[in-house]
Design a protein around this nucleic acid. Structure first.
Lengths: 263, 263
DNA sequence: TAAATGTTGTTGCTAAAATAACAACAAGGT
DNA sequence: ACCTTGTTGTTATTTTAGCAACAACATTTA
């Protein structure tokens, strides 16, 4: 490679993920620093071989990132970055939309496929995905939702998901501290911090105190949120009787401990 | 390739432009039609070689498109399409944003670089880019804006850009027909259809009657909008005295023809 | 219980496709 | 005669795809 000399590599990677090749990225960047450059000048400022510059410029014009003059020799000019990125994103969003609708179609054809006995335990990665599953759990609950959850996690992510839960569902929340009024909607039990954290782990280590939680819906679906220090969070989700019963017992003993009027 | 048998190719291309490889797309699609498939089942439904399925699944998990069970053998499940696409788009938008800000920084460093004499003639592709340039023209005008423009182009694209033009700038518009009230803001001259279209071209051919226009600001900047039949529109823009004077003369004679109280 | 068989997950190597890099040259302009 | 632009064809390099072989288990069969 001739000239990513002063160009940060992750900028090029970002542009690649917007659908450009390395050459296209280099040429566009080079073009942004000049005005009305000839192909040869583009070659010089971008470090891309002169012969390669022509097809690359053609593609960039096609992608609405550069404009061409009608002079001879041709002169090239970059569309301003804001506009250019927007042009790229428009294409990508179109693709995303058409992919999404095609995939939804396929997805609906999936037979519900009752996977009888032995329910597996799923690992879910990424905050978004965990929240989506948690929201499903809450919405699907018919009688009762129970949770043991660190306060920051509760206020940052969980409370917002509890809005749509119907009145008929009893919601018990155990958390470490609670300041302010008791929301009439749920039953919140404060709980001395540290007591319920990491039954198996020593407190001082890498696992963060915050961002973990245990959720149970109707005694049939359980989710364990594990916010592994700074990294992408992950969660276990299961409808298997094994894990559900474990969680059931765990919650029950905590409930007794904090003196909640349990089930 | 073993099995893009019933999978539309442009779906795969769309997914590729969202950052997936062909294999990743095939596996994700295959996974959408099953529930809790083992790696071997994934291999069967996707047509991807069994040995390749493992690294591909790893990457998909990393990209938050699939979740894994903790059973042995591992079972895989697709994140629903809507959620999945959203997860992909989030990454891309992050890249877009960081690229945009990095590029803006570079862009600002560009020396204005007075390219003295001989102004070139630019070709601009894409509706968005043309509109942006046109808007610049209007906003930069200090005394007068004149245009000869097909009615559909006028109402679809141009009128909206004229809003911010200050009162002190005189705006003359020549178009083919005009129904309804005369906007007090501009001077609109109706003009028998066909008479001003394509001076060099016979009317019956491929060039569409609609979607062309000529714009002149302050006698120094000219833009010619060419809406080539159904395709991506393009435009010429210039500040060169040559093109500007051509446009000036052209507009003047049309003005006289329609009996406008010209300059 | 031991042998045969099967499946899962891994590793390493080869093939094909997409990108990148270069050499050479025709056409024009000076 | 010389230089620059724009084009073409050919050869690396990198990324992606495809395959074969195998260790680790688990299941069946004798």
């Amino acid at each position: 490679m001739t000239a990513p000399r002063d160009i940060p590599n992750d900028l090029i990677e970002s542009l690649k993920s917007l659908g450009l090749t390395r050459y296209e990225a280099l040429v566009y960047i080079g073009l942004l620093r000049t005005t009305g450059a000839t192909a040869t000048e583009v070659h010089e400022t971008s470090g891309v071989p002169r012969a390669s510059v022509y097809p690359v410029l053609d593609r960039l014009v096609q992608k609405e990132l550069v404009s061409v003059s009608h002079t001879t020799p041709k002169r090239f000019d970059a569309v301003p970055p804001g506009q250019g990125i927007e042009n790229l994103m428009r294409r990508i969003e179109d693709d995303a939309e058409s992919a999404r609708s095609a995939l939804e179609r396929l997805y609906r054809e999936k037979r519900p496929e009752a996977r009888g006995n032995q329910e597996p335990i799923w690992t879910i990665y990424g905050e978004e995905n965990i929240r989506a599953r948690l929201s499903d759990m809450f919405l699907g609950a018919e009688r009762r939702v129970e949770m043991l959850v660190a306060r920051d996690l509760l206020v940052e992510h969980v409370l917002a998901l509890l809005g749509p839960v119907p009145e008929s569902v009893q919601v018990d929340i155990i958390t470490d501290t609670w300041e302010g009024e008791q929301p009439s909607r749920f039953r919140i039990h404060a709980h001395p911090p540290g007591a319920h954290q990491k039954p198996h782990t020593s407190p001082g280590k890498g696992l963060r105190y915050e961002s973990s939680g245990i959720f149970l819906a109707d005694d049939v679906r359980a989710l364990i949120w594990m916010g592994s220090s700074g990294e992408q969070p992950s969660a276990l989700y299961s409808e298997s009787t094994g894990l559900v019963q474990f969680v059931r017992r765990y919650l029950t003993s905590i409930m007794e401990w904090v003196g909640a009027t349990g089930q």
